[in-house]
């Protein structure tokens, strides 16, 4: 009985802190044409990964994603397909989990390792420890894609947004935003649609 009361109080305190933690975080990040900073983040295999490690890359698909968001889950297979299609063309996928695992335990580093193995991720799945990288980019939700083009001046942001226009059903996709952007970039053409919006899971701070 006593335990019940203590638990009740505990739940109350938890829910109160949850209320106060709602915040209005408008993050200013990179726009199209900005030069994106490199990073050094830990992959699920324990090794540190930086963009500079990729000698022959022409660009990168930096995708903020996670284990727990339903939209991120819905896009896992399509992220693998993007990596398989574009890695050989010099534009590999670099996935970053930006969530704070103390808020979202399902997004812990250990949980990331398990998910990467289960799904057979073909790309690095990095942990944004201390949540330092995603605010620089201005990622607000998962999944959130940044297409970078490697140039002499640095990695230039060419596309920001969603993967395609139908999260529910890959077979119903009419506009493959990311593929169109990468194809145009690799062909030296102008990217027609550089910014798209989608419902996603807010990054857990």
């Amino acid at each position: 009985m006593g335990i019940g009361k203590v638990m009740g109080a505990f739940v109350l305190i938890l829910s109160l802190t949850a209320f106060t933690s709602i915040e209005n975080n408008t993050i200013k990040g990179y726009g199209i044409g900005a030069i994106a900073d490199d990073f050094s983040l830990k992959n699920t295999d324990g090794k540190m990964v930086s963009l500079a490690d990729y000698d022959n890359a022409k660009g990168f698909l930096v995708i903020f994603t996670c284990n727990t968001c339903p939209y991120a889950i819905a896009y896992e297979d399509r992220i693998i397909a993007l990596d398989e299609k574009y890695k050989t063309q010099g534009v590999p996928v670099i996935a970053i989990n930006p969530n704070n695992p103390s808020i979202k335990p399902g997004d812990s580093f250990d949980a990331m390792k398990i998910r990467a193995k289960e799904k057979g991720f073909t790309f690095p799945y990095l942990f944004d420890e201390g949540q330092k990288v995603y605010p620089k980019y201005g990622a607000t939700k998962t999944p959130h894609v940044y297409l970078l083009q490697r140039t002499d001046k640095g990695n230039i942001v060419r596309y920001i947004g969603a993967i395609d226009d139908n999260y529910q059903d890959a077979s119903q996709v009419e506009d493959k935003y990311v593929e169109n952007a990468v194809d145009a970039m690799l062909a030296g053409k102008e990217i027609e649609l550089t910014l798209t919006k989608a419902i996603g899971c807010s990054i857990k701070v």
Binding site: T140, K141, G161, A162, D165, N166, Y167, Q168, D169, Q172, D175, Y177, T196, K197, A198, I199, G200, S202
Partner: peptide, 19 residues
């Protein structure tokens, strides 16, 4: 309505789609 890039800006132009 999965065509989110069409309807999100119609609700508000500055909305990125976070809930």
């Amino acid at each position: 309505d999965p065509k989110m890039n069409d309807w999100i800006p119609q609700i508000d132009n500055d909305w990125e789609g976070g809930i």
